[in-house]
Design a protein around this nucleic acid. Structure first.
Lengths: 145, 145
DNA sequence: CTTAAAGCATAGTAAAATAGTATGAATAGA
DNA sequence: TCTATTCATACTATTTTACTATGCTTTAAG
């Protein structure tokens, strides 16, 4: 009963983006801050990008930033993008077909509770300190944000 | 984010024992009822046995039965025996060491919620119909129960 | 206008976990 | 004594995970 490193790394990466929101941050920077393989992070960000939860700028001095403000992004969204839907197991027992399966009830209930818990945590809840505003002029921002 | 088949099969097996409680049921019988590999079920029952959540009788016409009454066994117990403790991920980020790690909070909270949910479901909650009392004389019972 | 640094995309791969099988011993009822 | 059962360990094929490798595209800086 474990989440994969994709969810773990992805969440940590999103937290680092939240701290710098709305400024751009490159995979190289995130990789160094969080000690996560840059190439692996690239794969994670391809998923986050195609789910439209982050925006990107290509080319030199490019990077990523959140597509929404930190209070409007939930941990549930991030985990679902990276781990897939939290679905109850398919049960092969005969009972299951006439929807009387006992154990299935457990997995349905559990999936609901997990989703509820994760959907209730906002990215902004995970940022410990307010962002420093001192070096803002050095930071890169997307035109659209 | 999935439970293994061990938890799934183990739970279904425990439900079938609950339905027949306190009578003995062999792995062969459970295997046929639930369409689960008998050899795989054996491994599952070795764990359940050593956790003392089931009782067994060896030899011909032997089998298993619950060690406690169905209302006194929770799904949480069963899952923990078969999947191990539901522990939050270890996080390798630098922040994590000074216990300020943002993402760790998520996994701690989630583990607690999963445990709470599963501990709150009793085996007796999963038995759809009351047991038939008609053929009781054919059934095998442990001396101690 | 060239180049370096970034994102984007797919393919490959080593290690670990999963979901079983196989083999055989110990036990006990018929 | 035979057979059906639990008990225990070892083996194995498949799948998943957690990466790495390769190479293309894009774009700001020099």
């Amino acid at each position: 009963m474990k989440f994969s490193t994709k969810a773990e790394y992805g969440l940590r990466a999103m937290v680092t983006l939240a701290k710098d929101y709305p400024y751009l941050k490159s995979i190289t920077e995130i990789s160094q801050e969080e000690h996560i393989s840059a190439k692996y992070l690239e794969q994670i960000f391809i998923k986050l990008k195609s789910a439209k939860i982050v925006l990107s700028q290509k080319g030199k001095s490019g990077g990523y930033t959140l597509a929404k403000e930190p209070p409007n992004i939930t941990v549930g969204e991030i985990v679902e993008i990276l781990e897939g839907k939290i679905e109850p197991k398919k049960c092969l027992s005969a009972e299951c077909k006439n929807s009387q399966c006992a154990s299935k009830k457990v997995w349905v209930k559990l999936s609901q509770e997990i989703k509820k818990t994760l959907d209730n945590i906002k990215l902004s809840d995970l940022i410990p300190d307010p962002p420093l505003l001192s070096k803002e002029k050095d930071k890169r921002k997307l035109e659209s944000v």
